[in-house]
Amino acid sequence: MAATGQITARPRPSVAPATGGAASARAAMMLRVACALVVFGVWEAVSRSGLFYGEVVPSLLSIAKAFGRLLVDPVFWKNLQVTALETIASLAIGAAAGVVTGIVLGANTFLMRAFEPYIYYLSPTPRIILFPVMIMWFGVGPTSKVALGALSAFFAVALSTAAGMRQIDKILIRVGHSFRATTWQMATKIYLPAMRIPILNGIRLGMGTAIITVLLAETKLSNQGLGYLIMQIYTRFDMPGLYALLIIVFIIAGACNALIGRLAKEQA
């Protein structure tokens, strides 16, 4: 049963590595560059042709300029800080709750059968629709975004932790018992090391959804944060700015994802 909740940013599938040595790596890199150039070229051509009205497809140069403008704009940094704080807070709350829930569900078959189906089937529902409720509960300020983000992160972390808990090699546990390890020793010497990867993986997935959810909530209703900034720029119809900001957001999201992914790998 592949957890539907864990699809948002699943690691690259374990396909067999393509054969070939350094030469084909270089060829692939060249092909990549060529593809990028073609995309840029077509983009620029479309932009210059004026096929689309207005600035729907702005020139690359204007996007680059907007990029630069954003990076020196204190407004951008202030909003980034808001979003970052909201995301970190929501991830901390959601992950803590998720790990605890996951361990409880993973350790106890009865509770697992009683409650895991709810988490499993609720996890892939569109979270953003809960936003009106969060506003009623926590107001229009940052708290409602944090709450929604925490809720999103919770599912991924809980499911991944519970699955990791169950996947611990039974023989390791028997080895632990055979050496008469205390509960504390079992937890620190066997469970925790074995759980590190699934928990980190859950946090990576949870962070992905938390970032998206927080930003979406900000676009819907707020007066600060990157999501708010996106809507501001959209309202101004500043297309180069919109592209630039979206690119920045994608890069940040991708970098965070890669960072935790690497962390999980190093611990392996």
Binding site: R12, G20, C35, I211, V249
Partner: peptide, 18 residues
């Protein structure tokens, strides 16, 4: 194999992109 090597990571990034 060549195209796959060149583009699979990009597709992975698309999967993770918000």
């Amino acid at each position: 194999a060549l195209w796959r090597r060149a583009l699979e990571d990009w597709v992975g990034a698309l999967a993770a992109a918000p």
